[in-house]
Simulated assay, not measured.
Amino acid sequence: MKSKDHKIILFDGVCNLCNGAVTFIIKRDKKDVFKFAALQSEIGRELTSKFNIDTSKVDSIILIDGEKHYEKSSAALRIAKYLSGAYPLLFGFMVVPKFIRNAVYDYIAKNRYKWFGKKESCMIPTAELKSKFL
Rank of each mutant, 00 (worst) to 15 (best):
S49G: 13
S73N: 12
F51R: 02
K57S: 00
S121F: 09
D106E: 15
R112V: 08
I108W: 03
S49Q: 14
I100E: 06
N19Y: 04
A80K: 04
D65V: 06
D32C: 10
L129D: 12
V14G: 00
I64M: 09
Y105Q: 07
F133N: 06
A21Q: 02
G85T: 08
P125T: 03
S131I: 06
K30C: 08
S121W: 04
S41P: 04
I61A: 03
I53M: 03
Y82T: 06
E42G: 06
I8Y: 14
D59M: 01
N102F: 02
F133L: 09
G85H: 09
L129N: 15
F91L: 13
K68A: 10
K81I: 04
R28N: 14
Y82F: 14
H6F: 14
C15H: 01
P125W: 05
E120I: 07
L77I: 09
A103L: 14
K132L: 04
G92Q: 07
I64P: 05
K57M: 00
L90N: 01
E120H: 12
K68G: 04
V95H: 01
E67I: 09
F116Q: 00
F133K: 08
F34P: 07
A109S: 15
L10H: 03
I64N: 04
K50A: 09
L129V: 07
F116R: 00
R112L: 07
I79Y: 04
L63C: 11
K7I: 11
V104R: 03
R101F: 01
F34L: 01
K50H: 12
L89M: 05
A80F: 12
L90Y: 09
I124L: 12
G85Y: 07
I9K: 02
F99Y: 13
P125F: 11
M123P: 07
L134C: 08
D29E: 11
V14C: 02
A21S: 15
L17Y: 02
R112G: 04
N52A: 10
Q40A: 07
A76T: 12
K50S: 08
L39R: 00
D5W: 12
D65N: 15
D65K: 13
N111K: 15
L129F: 09
N111P: 01
A103I: 06
I108K: 07
D32N: 15
